[in-house]
Simulated scan of single mutants.
Amino acid sequence: MEEYLNARVTHLELSGIRKFFNMVAEFDDVVSLTIGQPDFPTPLHIKEAAKQAVDEDFTVYTHNAGFLGLRDAAAKYMLKKYNVSYEAESEVIVTTGASEAIDISLRTILKEGDEVILPGPIYPGYEPIVRLCGAVPVLADITKSSFKMNAEVISGYITDKTKCIIIPYPSNPTGVTLTREELMEIAELVRGKGIFILADEIYSELVFDQQHTSIAEFLKGQTILINGLSKSHSMTGWRIGFLFAPKEIVQHILKVHQYNVSCASSISQKAAYAAVTAGFDDTAAMRDEYKRRRDYVYSRLVEMDLEVVKPDGAFYFFVKLPEAYSSSQDFALELLKKQKVALVPGDAFSPLGEGYVRLSYAYSMDTLKRALDRLQLFLKK
């Protein structure tokens, strides 16, 4: 019966990140720097809020968009953090993770043949959804712009078929973000055109050397803003994301959300409420530790004469392969077999990621030191 399935689905491939992660599981004594997941526990007060929700039988459907108290708290959180204003009743949807927010946004705005500009390299969670919608992903090469998806880069890819520009920042896999000035230039480039900006700002709280700016501050009418708690509050498994957009857009995205999941988990919503209220500053200590790790990893990579752009945020390095290697798969496999260190091959992040490997530093300093010591030994040999 496989021949009768939707060809758009059968032609999709599993994420290269997960495929390599599964391969790593077959080896013993591996130091893995593959997964982009915070290594901190969810803050205690958030877990207690979830327990209380269970005890109080808050185990029923909520409003499709999420219970109003959470939407209101999320809107206030975004206003205070990033100076973007949204109405809780009509411009906020609580989603099942940021991934669902991306999915329902693209399914709402895209038609057959529309073009979507994405930076390359890029996390593999966007392009398959674009293809499932019958739209065309257009990879913008950011390897020559210090991994910046800026207005100059974008302008070279806009056509009369462009419907959406996806801007994830800070970026997975590069950790690079955009400045306030660069975001203003992008806003001016597309202002008044029939082009949506899908701004994936899930790593917004993990920016080290500057203040995160949301492009929605300059272009609210054309922006669908995605955020969530997975990275900021170490809540990956709770699956809570937030979607913010003007009401005339949200009213239609909400329909897709409703028929997709009805609503996000009620228990997780109560935990999320604690995160965006009492946990307003929960990220600070985590961010400081990530910055300390970033600086350590960067110094080690530079010592090894590896070419790398110093990341502004998130918890990734996208490291250029030594000249002796042309295949990221070959490099990653050889490193895995010879020194038991796992890094993600760059081609998992689109063809434009070839020639690189991704290193996640969402691991303890001890783990990072052991992995980098082994990497250094591998390079010397």
Rank of each mutant, 00 (worst) to 15 (best):
I102W: 03
G36Q: 00
D103V: 00
L189S: 09
E2R: 08
D282W: 01
L106V: 02
H252P: 04
S32G: 03
H45P: 01
E334F: 04
T59A: 07
V136H: 12
L243Y: 01
L225F: 00
R374W: 04
D295I: 12
R71I: 09
V130F: 10
Y82A: 09
A88D: 05
F20D: 00
R71C: 13
V94R: 02
R358M: 14
K231E: 00
Q211I: 09
S105N: 06
F208R: 13
L335G: 03
L243E: 08
L333P: 01
E91H: 08
A278Q: 11
E127Y: 14
V309L: 01
L321E: 05
S85A: 08
N172E: 13
T162F: 07
S15K: 10
S328I: 15
L44P: 08
A199F: 02
P246E: 10
V9R: 10
E185C: 02
R300A: 09
F244P: 09
S326G: 14
D57S: 10
Y77A: 05
S234V: 04
D114L: 01
R300T: 08
R374F: 03
V24Q: 03
K340C: 08
S232P: 01
V84Q: 03
V130Y: 07
P168C: 04
D305V: 00
D288Q: 12
K320M: 05
L79H: 12
R107S: 10
L183R: 12
Y298I: 04
I240H: 02
G16M: 10
V250W: 01
V176W: 06
N83I: 08
I167V: 14
M304H: 11
I158R: 05
Y86P: 09
L183P: 06
I17Q: 10
L44K: 14
